[in-house]
C-alpha cells in the first residue's frame, strides 16, 4: 500500500525550527547517555560533566526516563539526589 506521508510532503514544508529542535534533542540525548555509560549519576553530576544548565539536563533526563532509555538507580547518601542509569 502506498504511504500517505509522500502526499503530505508535497503540501507541507517542515519548519526549520522543527529540524533544529530534533538536532538539539538528539545531541543532548547522546551526551547524557554517554555520561551514564560509566556509572549512575545525578542531575548536577551530569550537568557538570557536559557543561549544560541543570534544568535542561533535568528535562532531557526525565524525558529519556519516560521513553525508557534511562531508569532510576539509588538515591545519594544525603537523600537529596537520585542517581540515574542506562536501562538495559
Amino acid at each position: 500500500m502506498g504511504k500517505t506521508i509522500d502526499i503530505i510532503k508535497k503540501k507541507r514544508e517542515v519548519p526549520q525550527e522543527v529540524k533544529d529542535n530534533i538536532k538539539a534533542f538528539t545531541k543532548i540525548k547522546k551526551q547524557i547517555l554517554k555520561t551514564l555509560e560509566t556509572e549512575p549519576k545525578s542531575v548536577p553530576q551530569i550537568a557538570k560533566e557536559i557543561d549544560l544548565a541543570q534544568d535542561i539536563v533535568t528535562y532531557h533526563l526525565m524525558t529519556l526516563q519516560k521513553f525508557g532509555s534511562v531508569e532510576v538507580d539509588d538515591i545519594d547518601d544525603m537523600d537529596e539526589y537520585y542517581l540515574y542509569k542506562l536501562k538495559k
Binding site: 538515591i75 539526589y81 537520585y82
Partner: peptide, 11 residues
C-alpha cells in the same frame, strides 16, 4: 520518578 525540583532534580 518522585516529587523533584525541575531545576536540578533534587528532592
Amino acid at each position: 520518578n518522585n516529587v523533584l525540583r525541575p531545576k536540578d532534580g533534587k528532592m
